[in-house]
Computed example of a mutant assay.
Amino acid sequence: MSVTLADRLPDRSGKAGLRLWLKSSGYARRLLMGEAGDPWVSAPAYLAFFTQAHGLLRPDVAVIEVADLYRSWIARHPELVTEMAAKRRAAWPLRAMLEAEGPRRLLAEVVEAVAASLRGQAPVVLALPAPRQWLAEASAAVGRPAPDDGDAVEDAAMYLADLARAVSSLPVGGLLIEAGDGDLGDVEAWRPLANVARHYRWGLVLRHSGSGGRLNGEAADFDAVIAAVPPAAAGAGGRDIGPALWGDAPLSPLAAGEFYFAEVPPGSAPEAVLENLARLRA
């Protein structure tokens, strides 16, 4: 069953929706598999990992960290790096990586398995690095500096959109783009990703983890924006309360159209995590 993230988001008119969005893959991986554990070796292995993590933390959104899948695949299949280095075009390393058949097939199997296990209880969201960030990471994998031109970023956004279309027949509910201050000037170049989300009626969410840049009118392009101070122009606001939550600071109540977001520090003690989540849910 496909559950659309957009239908689960609260809105400024006061409609109730999801309350807690957790980013917990690093913490869950260390806790359940150890520092060297890799849940991405197969879809059954990932499902076993996901089921344990989701049952332990009970977030309102099921997030699949797509970049982690590709990092694992490259570590286990170094021949892909050779293909990524085969051409000198600025965006070729990312294109070759994202078009590779093996990781695409694994992503499809993971999405299908996770959605089937959830049975409509939570939307399945694909988390993607902002195009400029993933472009730089793919270039670094083949020993090249990060491209610094707008055309390469636009190309990167098209390749990410093509990856999303490749799983469009599966029960995906939304896309999350994770961005820092240096990515906010590229929002218009992300149009291919926004078009894919709109076409398939997925939710489109931006997480801004930086501290200096600010979104203005561009926030209206997203169904939700996650930030320390979410912009009012966004359809819904994800209030990033991580520092306050893990620092035992007081938490202010949610306003209309808001939900809590927190990234669980990978090195956290399980008892402290569960205590703070109980405090938040109370």
Rank of each mutant, 00 (worst) to 15 (best):
Pro265Asn: 01
Ala272His: 14
Gly174Val: 05
Leu254Phe: 12
Asp149Ile: 03
Ala234His: 09
Leu135Cys: 01
Leu245Val: 01
Gly235Lys: 12
Leu170Met: 05
Gly247Val: 03
Leu274Val: 08
Glu188Asn: 12
Trp202Lys: 03
Ala140Ser: 10
Glu271Lys: 12
Ser168Gln: 08
Ile177Pro: 02
Val167Arg: 06
Asp148Met: 08
Ala234Gly: 03
Ser168Lys: 09
Arg132Ala: 03
Pro131Leu: 03
Val229Ser: 15
Asp149Met: 03
Asp223Tyr: 10
Ala164Arg: 08
Leu206Ala: 01
Asp148Arg: 13
Arg239Leu: 12
Ala189Trp: 13
Leu254Glu: 04
Val264Ala: 00
Pro131Arg: 07
Val273Arg: 05
Leu175Val: 11
Asp155Glu: 15
Gly185His: 11
Leu215His: 10
Ser139Ile: 02
Asp183Gly: 02
Ala249Asp: 11
Arg239Val: 15
Ala228Leu: 15
Asp181Tyr: 11
Pro266Glu: 13
Gly217Pro: 08
Val172Leu: 08
Pro231Leu: 04
Leu176Glu: 05
Ala220Asn: 10
Ala234Leu: 04
Pro192Met: 03
Glu258Gly: 05
Ser169Leu: 11
His199Tyr: 14
Arg191Thr: 13
Glu271Ala: 10
Leu184Trp: 13
Asp186Arg: 06
Glu188Lys: 13
Gly182His: 10
Ser139Leu: 00
Gly213Ser: 15
Pro250Phe: 01
Asp183Gln: 07
Ala194His: 14
Leu193Thr: 06
Leu163Ser: 01
Ala146Gln: 07
Leu274Pro: 06
Leu251Tyr: 12
Trp134His: 11
Ser168Tyr: 09
Ala156Gly: 00
Ala197Thr: 00
Leu254Cys: 05
Gly210Arg: 08
His208Asp: 04
Ala140Phe: 09
Tyr159Arg: 08
Gly174Ala: 04
Gly203Arg: 05
Trp202Thr: 03
Ala194Tyr: 11
Ser268Ala: 10
Gly238Lys: 10
Phe261Trp: 14
Tyr200His: 14
Pro231Arg: 09
Asp221Ala: 15
Val167Cys: 03
Ala234Ile: 04
Gly150Asp: 15
Pro192His: 05
Gly237Phe: 04
Asp149Gly: 00
Asp183Ile: 00
Ile226Trp: 12
